[in-house]
Write a protein that binds this DNA or RNA. Structure first.
Lengths: 132, 132
DNA sequence: TTGTAGTTTATAATGATTCTAAAAAAGTGT
DNA sequence: ACACTTTTTTAGAATCATTATAAACTACAA
């Protein structure tokens, strides 16, 4: 299985549950957005398998810490995660409550002119809210 | 009282609680960020007055709907609001968990090149995450 | 195989937010 | 001022996402 090594290299034991989550999240060319509950449903369907909600939380947080996932900063009752961990931006359709990726080529370069003493920029993320 | 008219013009009855909240939020030149609980504490201190948590929620949401406040899109357990409703951007200090305003002059112009059919852009917000 | 450290799990706990329904206050007309 | 309607406030309950707990299970190394 191709994710076993990836997990081991990250110091995470390749358990059945983690491998299932890897399949759902990373076994595709397309990146995508998801919430914890959406992910749990996908696993239950795709692998026809029960998985504990707590395990989904644990694993997603572990993957986020390792840099395989990132949270999308947005005000929503549920937290959104993104399998695209490269710097990129989002549309948020307020009516449909749906996130849409922006390619980097869709947004011109962003210049942050201010500096904060002793701090460095980790990421620059743009959220474009859409209305009808 | 200078906020009575403002509230009436918005179709909101100028109650004691709403006027107190206006004093705390708008009776200053500086704009600032706050959470519901911080706001409740300020009111309790400043006006030496009890106010129901539900009222603070109700009022903040009413003010947001009227455009006097806006939510800051950020992943935090509590929702952050901003008394600065003009288009502007934020630093987020990951270590201190603190928001810092960016002036518009601190960020170069942002070009959104992609269009979504039938939707228009309501706002463009940049979140710059800072680390040590 | 045996030990142990890491992982999963169901369930309980937490905490922010929303809901509810009754009491209080504000607005309106008389 | 009074009666009446509508809006608002309020305490407490309900909800919902997330985190904590602690017991059972699993991976892995000696």
């Amino acid at each position: 299985m191709k994710y076993i090594e990836k997990l081991r290299n990250s110091g995470l034991r390749p358990t059945k549950q983690r491998l299932q989550i890897c399949e759902v999240l990373f076994n595709t060319d397309k990146t995508f957005h998801f919430t914890i509950n959406e992910l749990k449903q996908k696993i239950t369907k795709q692998a026809n398998n029960k998985i504990s909600l707590a395990t989904v939380y644990n694993t997603v947080h572990a993957f986020e810490k390792k840099g395989y996932l990132k949270q999308i900063p947005i005000n929503s009752s549920e937290t959104y995660f993104d399998t695209n961990v490269t710097d990129h931006h989002h549309f948020y359709d307020l009516k449909e409550e749906k996130l849409i990726d922006l390619e980097n080529s869709d947004v011109g370069p962003i210049n942050i002119l201010k500096k904060i003493n002793g701090k460095k920029i980790k990421s620059v993320e743009v959220l474009v809210k859409l209305e009808d």
